[in-house]
């Protein structure tokens, strides 16, 4: 009756996921850097301005600002390059395959036959850098696969190709 595949005494398997074929656009580094700069600059500026205006509390306002700025500088210097190395994507005739994250690395595979919608998304910063994000949703509540940091023309092509393949597949993708 039982057809368990792995056994207690089975030797550890050496199977692993290979990296997806394509890197994201190099401009993504600039986009991520700007994002992080804005993220860290906002609290720093607020704290410094308050520190200048409120003399008695100056130390307690400027000290955290310096701390946040230090953390922010490290993040801005290191993270975008790091992300650029690990963010990879691939579209085959059968599936979309992505890899993201470093500390929490995540690989996602969504078969084309189960895709429900394909969108491209461009925030104001992405537009400035000529980038776009491809968002692929499936019927799963946790299933949306995103490919960030693509050249916007390439993103449009990928989305179009995916949409055509998806429409050719019958069924409601559940």
């Amino acid at each position: 009756m039982t057809t368990g595949t792995a056994d207690t005494a089975a030797p550890p398997s050496s199977t692993r996921l290979r990296p997806p074929r394509n890197a994201v656009d190099r401009r993504a580094i600039g986009w991520w850097t700007t994002n992080l700069l804005l993220l860290f600059a906002a609290p720093v500026v607020v704290l410094v301005v308050l520190g200048v205006l409120i003399a008695p509390a100056r130390f307690w306002l400027v000290a955290p600002a310096v701390l946040i700025a230090a953390v922010g500088l490290v993040a801005v210097a290191a993270l975008p390059r790091w992300w650029f190395r690990v963010h990879r994507w691939e579209v085959t005739d059968a599936a979309v395959y992505t890899r993201t994250g470093f500390f929490w690395q995540e690989w996602r595979v969504a078969p084309l036959s189960r895709i429900q919608t394909v969108d491209t998304r461009r925030g104001p910063l992405e537009q400035r850098f000529g980038l776009a994000t491809v968002v692929v949703t499936t019927a799963s509540a946790k299933g949306a696969v995103t490919i960030p940091g693509l050249d916007h023309a390439l993103a449009a092509d990928v989305a179009e190709q995916l949409t055509e393949t998806t429409q050719a597949t019958p069924g409601d993708a559940t």
């Binding site: 595949t5 792995a6 089975a10 550890p12 398997s13 050496s14 199977t15 692993r16 996921l17 290979r18 997806p20 691939e90 085959t92 059968a94 599936a95 395959y97 690989w107 595979v109 078969p111």
Partner: peptide, 22 residues
Amino acid sequence: GTGLDAAESAVPGLLAPFLEQQ
């Protein structure tokens, strides 16, 4: 490795193109 093998045997063919042997 075991987890990936189990996933591949559960839905044959879906994960296979993206797997390699260490």
